[in-house]
Design a protein around this nucleic acid. Sequence first.
DNA 1: CTCCAGGCATATT
DNA 2: AATATGCATGGA
Length: 288
Amino acid sequence: MKQDATRPPAARSRGALVFERAAPLDLAETLDGGQAFRWRGCEDGAYVGVVARQVVRAFLKGGRLTIEGAPLAARPFWRAYFALDLDYGAIRRRLAEDPALRECLGFARGLRVLRQEFFEALVTFILTQNNNVPRVKGIVARLCATFGDPLGGDFEGEPAFAFPSPGRLAALDESDLACLRAGYRVPGILDAARQVVSGRLDETALKTLPVPEARARLLGVRGVGPKVADCVLLYGLGRFDCCPVDVWIRRALARFFPDGLPACSSGIAGIAQQYLFHYARLHGLDGR
DNA sequence: CTCCAGGCATATT
DNA sequence: AATATGCATGGA
């Protein structure tokens, strides 16, 4: 509830990006489903987020997606972020060939798999280890507020901060990160940052290498196991052919689909998995 | 106060 | 190669 009349106006090159034919896309399902941790829903259905050093407001109206606050030059970025280059109608039709997935599709009409930034996905999914989404959001917020660059906008009623760069985090030690209250996940954050800075973890390589090799490299990071590695491949590297291992989900869903879970169409197994995960959460499956 | 969160690292069989 | 246990922290 504070005003800052001295703050410079938003950069003049910023405006509203409008994407026609964004459907099927549901912001709540996509932005608030445990894929990303830097979006907050508003009462009017819009979402405010900090992504790639941009503080933006996203909303849907009549099948059109509007992104306010982004540089006009960032249009390709947002198109990729929301996977607007993919024909989700066709993808859903293909997934619907499997009976189990067909059931799930009905409960997530506008779910999409985001293409997030690599380093942020790597760090945030290290944080998800044995953790819950609200707390991950809190840790990420503290991480950004403490070590990220101020961006000049507002987020959650506070000044907005960028996600910290690998270089910034790599120079820290565990005591510096104690303020995050991230517990035993801290060494993983540091190792991830240092491996990126050293070049041992290279985004371009991870995007072009065969999935098994990219996965093997990610597994070399402290705090990255099979689950986190595949989440990073899927959300942070756009490897939609990669399917996060999720023992819990498979066990829980087995109750609903005794005939077996879908084989996961080749090439888009990760997208299929996302529908399964959403379905499981929606139905409050506890795996009992 | 318990339980547990889309696991992982490590020590045991 | 499987299987068991500890783990920091705080939301519910």
